[in-house]
Design a protein around this nucleic acid. Structure first.
Lengths: 224, 224
DNA sequence: TATTTATGATAGTAATACTATTATTTAAAA
DNA sequence: TTTTAAATAATAGTATTACTATCATAAATA
């Protein structure tokens, strides 16, 4: 029996469920590839269709527009991270160890996970670093939020916040600190690679330095 | 004598200096207005031209494209913040007081400053919250960085980093912490207003809560 | 076998992001 | 003051993007 990890997605994000057909899976797979390679701005449904070997209209049958497709793959990523978090912190009692695991999970560029055939998690992690915030930094955040497009992100933020509270039940800003960790795990990575003078990480450009920075930040803040 | 604050801008950002003509100043003024009202995605040179009462070609004589115009107004903002920082922390000896001033400066939506006629700093602050990161989250960061588009931002980050070191000369991540403060002053504000469950700020949606969060974060981190 | 459903192929539209050209006004230099 | 140069306005045009619509065909299902 083949184990396949299925992440439950918000149906408002798509017109036809991409998990349910080969074409759909190809749309996801090639979207990740193209956005990873050229950035979201340069990504068009036409290029995507050509890369798959279908037509623009074919893609439009699955996704209303490229923004929803971006939000889809980003939601997928957060869902996957949530799964990893639950899996990796399962049975760990010490909340400090848990929180360290979370920081590492958020900061590390994972190997491609074989259990999710059409998704390259490593590329997706890179996409999140450069394009993640574009999911919500729009004029229509409010509408999107009402449709629960950001639920996986919020749930993750909540989970991290809970672990923070386990470490220090009196800490006053668990959600803000959680969103700070999540965002900074990505942003400091972007800065390290593209605007290094905004960071203090050596030329080696190693993720382990970001992890050290975040651990120092978090554990001093919650006073452990 | 009328005092006018002039922020020195990188000439690679424009084709013709917008400070040197009425049309130029109008381009800046109306750009800020439109981007503030509709977001950067919905902002086009055509709309801008119509709003000013000139033609698209007229705008293109000043700016090569809308991205450079965005980077221009964002650079202007960081230059202005740098000036405010120097001005407001001048003669203050206690670095802790200085750092608190900086956090407040970055987190507070200022009143429109009369000394800069065509720029509405309050709107600009809002733009930075929603659109600031789009200046560098592009495929061409590298190129833009080589042309020193992000110099004002880096300089500010450096100044903040220096104050952090004055507070604690042994702190290991002054630049990363500085960029974290700068980015989070904006991002927590965005979350507070649009995705409040990612924060711990009450329904009052008051900037003072962000300031408290950041002060707690920063001074615990550098162990004051 | 009939019928629904997904896909493929093609066409078309409005808007965007520009470039180019020429005429006209304004400002600076001779 | 005249000449000349520079800035602007007016108009047109192009390639690309972000879609919508239509119709034929292939595959799956009843």
């Amino acid at each position: 029996m083949k184990l396949e990890l299925q992440i439950k997605m918000n149906p408002s994000l798509y017109l036809r469920d991409p998990e349910q057909s080969e074409l759909g899976k190809n749309i996801i797979k090639h979207s990740i590839q193209i956005i990873h390679d050229n950035g979201f701005e340069a990504f068009t449904f036409k290029k995507l269709a050509e890369s798959i070997g279908t037509t623009e209209a074919g893609v439009y049958r699955y996704f209303e527009n490229k923004h929803k497709l971006l939000v889809y793959i980003i939601s997928w990523y957060w869902g996957w991270i949530q799964f990893q978090l639950n899996y990796q912190t399962n049975n760990i009692k010490d909340p400090i160890v848990k929180l360290k695991k979370v920081i590492t999970l958020l900061s590390t560029n994972v190997e491609d996970d074989i259990t999710t055939g059409h998704v390259d998690e490593s590329q997706l992690h890179q996409i999140l670093i450069s394009e993640g915030s574009k999911a919500y930094l729009t004029n229509h955040v409010g509408k999107d939020n009402k449709q629960e497009f950001f639920k996986p992100y919020k749930e993750l933020c909540n989970s991290v916040g809970e672990i923070i509270l386990e470490c220090n039940p009196k800490y006053k800003y668990p959600h803000s600190l959680a969103s700070t960790i999540i965002e900074m795990a990505h942003l400091q990575n972007f800065f390290m690679n593209h605007l290094p003078s905004l960071t203090d990480f050596s030329k080696s450009k190693n993720e382990s330095e970001i992890i050290k920075y975040l651990e120092d930040l978090v554990f001093n803040t919650i006073r452990i």
